[in-house]
Design a protein around this nucleic acid. Structure first.
Lengths: 337, 337
DNA sequence: CTGAAAGCGCTTACAG
DNA sequence: CTGAAAGCGCTTACAG
């Protein structure tokens, strides 16, 4: 154990001087203070009471890093939060919702003060700058989504290859040959967002192997953005007979704008949504959808975080395709137009 | 300052014995231990290092006590959690979701380990045993719901008198003279749950003053429970022409059971729901509702908790009545049957 | 199972 | 601005 006497010897001062440097009860010259502080750091002196670095006891709290960025999809985030909250309770844990989008430095500060037995990280980017900091946490960490490169951390995510395969087969079987992808807003791609990028990439690849052509356009959340996306996909290319919609929040607006253009769903154009059931299965138009398994993903994340699964593994959940009312046979005008 | 020497003198033992009781490095007889422990508590001895009770620094965390009991209405709870999460972020705070339903002792334990600048308490009972513990927290506390007696703590809640007044007027204007109340499940009342009790009480009073008769029945969440509730309200009293539904989760089931009985809404029976808009405004049947202002309540709770409003105040939000498709003129057979 | 006493690390009134 | 030394609170090897 390092005592102030050791520090004093190293610094060439009296123990009492070290004491005063530490508690500031009388003025110390700048030189002496600097000298003493350096020895304190070098020898690793810890004051009594804080010598054992907080006897890492179970806190009963699970951390969920869920950055609430401006423009975030709050209802999708809330669904995951809810699933995680319930799953954490089943394992006798409370949930600390870390919603501050403060990047790496904020992460370090938060984890220094906030206590949690383990951490789930949402909204993982393809190349995520928080990963080195997460690796030093000495607590179990679970990423929701896969970075491009392996990290040594556990991941849970959606098996987009399987999801896309089902969607593509479904559309191909209905005779569609040319499909438009209504993407996420551009900023989501620019940020390196994981879901939209992965889905688009996987869909395009799978469609190609089934002989389907695809055209992709990002889509913002306003009526104007939806209109210009539809212009780009439909007006310019009359061959497109089906739309795959990745951007959940845009669904009601999209249905409304199509209706206004006189395009009937599914008679004139088929619609396949990629989203949670709550967003798809909503009267009056119940959408065929690839269901993002939010609840199951939350459960899996909690179990991975608290179950101390070892070694770190990546586990993917395959979403179901639920056929409802918004997809039908390709319109007659299809590719022969 | 209390030292182990003081404790030793009070307990009639040697200081070394007190030391061993505290650090457990050698066995101590049960009698001696008990005696020493009592003196430690009575004199308020604190070991060195933990004497200053953690220099109360801002944690940037807001606590939300939201007990997830078995059978809890998770979606209603999630709506409030979501509103609170967003409002807390706007004030630069993360959210600690304390979902453990552990009563008073659990509360003390949780608040000892978990750090939070302030605490919001959901699901407050009419006479809530947690209030004494909450009063000792030395942090701002906001109750969601009003206990029967004033507590000295801040409260936010729903102005049921205003809500009920609007609902009663609406039904009275439509010619209804006899109204059935589909209540919460009985356990909610037995627990002293705040919302159902208050609403039922206020509604019955207001209805009386407008010359409306009311009949109240609790209602569980199963199809059988809904049927027996409807039996009690409709079959036994053919004069009832409108139902006020307090139990949000039962709404879809209730609509379905009425349909099965051949009772058209609103031609044969009017339906007025007390719930959040998401639950009421859902095709195919868009319900007239008294809208519980969940989002606004969450914002108000966060502002009260973090705004250090002083002195403690009770602030109530008046819900709106939104007229949709489920209420209409009283059926001809009404009270003249 | 307990106590008397030496010892340790830190603090602080005193001296310069 | 700094040091030598007394003192304080807690711990622990020794004794019974």
């Amino acid at each position: 154990m390092v005592t102030i006497i050791d520090v004093a010897r190293a610094a060439g001062v009296a123990p009492s001087t070290v004491s005063y440097v530490l508690n500031g009860k009388r003025p110390i010259s700048a030189d002496t203070r600097r000298q003493v502080e350096q020895c304190i750091r070098q020898l690793g002196y810890r004051p009594p009471g804080r010598r054992t670095p907080a006897p890492r006891q179970r806190t009963g709290v699970l951390g969920l890093l869920a950055p609430l960025r401006p423009g975030a999809n709050v209802s999708a985030l809330t669904r995951f939060v809810s699933a995680t909250m319930v799953a954490a309770r089943a394992r006798n844990h409370d949930l600390l919702l870390l919603t501050h989008d403060a990047g790496v430095s904020g992460l370090r500060r938060t984890m220094a003060t906030a206590v949690a037995d383990a951490l789930i990280v949402m909204d993982v980017q393809s190349s995520d700058p928080r990963i080195p900091a997460l690796l030093t946490l000495d607590r179990p960490v679970v990423l929701v989504g896969e970075p491009d490169l392996p990290t040594g951390l556990s991941c849970v995510g959606v098996d987009f290859a399987a999801a896309v395969d089902r969607a593509v087969r479904h559309l191909a079987n209905l005779g569609h040959r040319s499909v438009g992808i209504v993407g996420a807003p551009l900023p989501a791609y620019a940020r390196g967002g994981n879901y939209p990028r992965r889905f688009t990439r996987a869909f395009t690849a799978a469609a190609g192997s089934q002989g389907l052509r695809t055209r992709w356009r990002p889509c913002g959340d306003s009526a104007e953005a939806v209109d210009s996306c539809l212009d780009a996909l439909l007006a310019e290319g009359p061959d497109i007979t089906a739309l795959v919609v990745e951007n959940e929040v845009v669904l009601p607006l999209l249905v409304e704008r199509l209706h206004r253009r006189g395009r009937r769903v599914p008679e004139d154009v088929s619609l396949l949504a990629v989203c949670h059931d709550d967003a798809a299965d909503r009267p009056p138009l119940r959408l065929t959808s690839v269901t993002l398994p939010t609840v199951e993903l939350g459960q899996l994340a909690v179990e991975t975080a608290l179950g101390q699964v070892d070694p770190p593994a990546t586990r993917l959940l395959a979403p179901e395709l639920t056929v409802r009312e918004s997809t039908g046979p390709a319109a007659a005008t299809s590719s022969c137009a």
